[in-house]
């Protein structure tokens, strides 16, 4: 009888573990398949033309604070934090070759944030190891097209403290931040930096997720999955611990 119970418990735990792993896989699969950037060559970018990012989606006004009073496009469908592709903003990575002193390249990124309350969106470029030489001179200017506010202008390597922008709203809303990133080389850059390479990953993040709300409608699958996985794991862990304790007690007696 005891053996039978043990077998049942083990079977249940195994099933739970499998479910957990499957759910985790689903979570990561969803994250990395829906937001994978397209690798394209960047050319013919223009400054000032991309402020109109109107799409076919419904828009509504946002209630923003001083730091984000500029007109911010909002939509009714979004994840909590996502890159949103529009007709003019493709969120494509930089692919710049043959840069010379004085050259610059501009890319635009549209970050969509679903929030209810103050939320600070941080931008940080992560330079990969082995590209330190060009990092000594490569500069970037991070600005928000929504407000024209320049968040950072300087060496890309010095942007270790993220470029921050705070959004505020009293009600559940989905805001879009239009980042204009200009990467450039000063005209004074010398011969030492000829034929050098730099690879960086750009990241937008919200570390304090308290005010991040689920989108009003639609894609909250990830949240549900996360909650489900945690619940299942907690249950499995508790069951395992109780079962072990019981076993130990029985062995002692």
């Amino acid at each position: 009888m005891k053996k039978k119970t043990e077998r049942i418990v083990i079977a249940v735990l195994s099933v739970l573990l499998v479910i957990c792993l499957a759910l985790l896989f689903l979570v990561f699969w969803q994250r990395y398949t829906t937001k994978k950037p397209v690798h394209t060559e960047v050319s013919g970018n223009q400054i000032g033309e991309d402020s109109d990012v109107s799409s076919d989606e419904t828009t509504m006004p946002t209630d923003t604070d001083e730091t984000s009073r500029a007109p911010t496009t909002t939509t009714t469908t979004a994840s909590r934090l996502s890159l949103h592709r529009t007709k003019t903003v493709h969120n494509a990575p930089f692919f710049v070759k043959n840069m010379f002193p004085g050259d610059f390249e501009i890319n635009h990124y549209c970050v969509r944030v679903s929030h209810n309350g103050p939320v600070t969106v941080e931008f940080i470029p992560k330079i990969r190891d082995g590209y330190e030489v060009l990092a000594e001179v490569l500069k970037c200017r991070i600005s928000l097209q929504n407000s024209g506010k320049v968040l950072y202008d300087g060496l890309i390597a010095d942007l270790t403290d993220p470029a921050k922008h705070t959004l505020n709203s009293d009600k559940q809303t989905v805001a879009e931040l239009l980042y204009e990133i200009t990467v450039y080389l000063d005209e004074s850059v010398g011969n030492r930096y000829q034929n050098k390479e730099l690879v960086a990953d750009f990241e937008w993040r919200v570390t304090d997720t308290e005010s991040l709300g689920p989108p009003e409608t639609g894609q909250n699958l990830r949240l549900i999955l996360n909650a489900a996985v945690i619940s299942v794991l907690v249950f499995a862990l508790t069951t395992l611990l109780i079962w072990r304790k019981r076993n130990e007690k029985q062995e002692c007696s």
């Binding site: 979570v27 994250r31 937001k35 950037p37 690798h39 909590r80 934090l81 996502s82 890159l83 969120n91 494509a92 990575p93 930089f94 692919f95 710049v96 070759k97 043959n98 840069m99 010379f100 990124y109 970050v111 470029p125 060009l134 490569l138 990467v183 080389l185 930096y193 000829q194 034929n195 050098k196 390479e197 730099l198 690879v199 960086a200 990953d201 750009f202 990241e203 937008w204 993040r205 919200v206 570390t207 997720t209 991040l212 996360n226 945690i230």
Partner: peptide, 18 residues
């Protein structure tokens, strides 16, 4: 995954000419 929300654009490449 729950407490840290992040999106990224990877593999930004910059190569200087010579």
């Amino acid at each position: 995954a729950l407490v840290w929300e992040a999106v990224s654009v990877k593999d930004n490449l910059f190569i200087t000419g010579r």
